[in-house]
Amino acid sequence: MTKIKTLADLKKMKEEVRSKITLREQGDNPEDRVQVKVAMATCGIASGAKDVMDFMVGAFNKRGIDAVVTQTGCMGYCYAEPTVEVTVPGKEPVVFGYVDVKKADEIIEKYIKKGILLEGIIPVNYQTIE
C-alpha cells in the first residue's frame, strides 16, 4: 500500500473508490456484477453467516455467475440473522432474512438467476446519510 501523504491524495482516492461504489449502488451498467453483502457482525456470525458466505462464494464460482461477495457490519435486523443484501444490476438492493445455505441456494437460483422474488425479504426501514 502507498501512503496517503496529502489531503489531495485522500480526495483523489475517495473519488476513485466512490465511483466504484456508485456503480454498485446504481448498477445501471448491464455488464456490472451481482453484489452480495453478508452481514458479518457477531450476531450474524453466531447464527451462521460464515457458512452462508462460504457457500455463496463457492456457488458463484461453480455456477459461473459473475458476482462479488463481501462482508459488512450489522444491518440491525438481529431478529432475522443471518441477513444478506443482494443487488442485481439495475435493481434496488434487496435484503433477505433468515438466510441459511438452503435459502442462499434459492436466492441464487431464483432471485439472482431468474429475478423471482422470494419470501423472507426484509424491507429496509431506515435512512442513512450520504
Binding site: 453483502k37 452481514a39 457482525a41 459488512t72 457490519g73 440491525g76 442513512t128 446519510i129
Partner: peptide, 12 residues
C-alpha cells in the same frame, strides 16, 4: 436515521 451506524451493513 443512521448516522453512527451509517456504514454498518454498507461497507466492508
Amino acid at each position: 436515521l443512521r448516522i453512527a451506524l451509517r456504514n454498518c451493513g454498507f461497507i466492508n
